[in-house]
């Protein structure tokens, strides 16, 4: 598992990168009440706003961590946004991204580095 400074986790699954938010992020956001997912087959660039999350406290975005194509989204989150709080690093993944070269993941933080970031 790799981590971004934007509190996303990235997990390689075959030739795809699965993206979700960390437990720290889910806790900080509070109860999630709305999730808007991108369309599949959308090409995204690193830093694009791809997901809208609304919690009881605020609206926020998940940014695309990498350039790539959205190939699958987790429709379960639209029907049950609370899943983001219940299982942020498991069943509450947001989208799967096809990237050209998986080696770009090496540049992201590992778990220890991420834990240092959130202190």
């Amino acid at each position: 598992m790799k981590y971004t400074k934007e509190h996303e986790w990235l997990r390689v699954e075959g030739d795809l990168v699965v993206v979700g938010i960390t437990e720290h992020a889910a806790t900080a956001l509070g109860d999630v009440v709305f999730v808007e997912l991108p369309e599949v087959e959308t090409m995204v660039a690193e830093g694009d706003e791809v997901v809208v999350i609304e919690s009881v406290k605020a609206a926020s975005d998940i940014l695309a961590p990498l350039d790539g194509e959205i190939v699958e989204v987790n429709q379960k989150l639209v029907d049950n946004p609370a899943l983001v709080n219940e299982d942020p690093t498991g069943s509450a993944w947001f989208f799967k991204l096809r990237v050209d070269d998986l080696s770009v993941l090496d540049a992201f933080m590992d778990e220890d580095e991420y834990n240092d970031l959130i202190g």
């Binding site: 400074k5 509190h7 720290h24 956001l29 919690s55 926020s60 975005d61 940014l63």
Partner: peptide, 16 residues
């Protein structure tokens, strides 16, 4: 305009 997660969490305060 949305806020990146880090921006929101980094601020430490989510309530207005």
């Amino acid at each position: 305009m949305g806020w990146g997660l880090a921006c929101l969490i980094g601020a430490g305060v989510i309530f207005r």
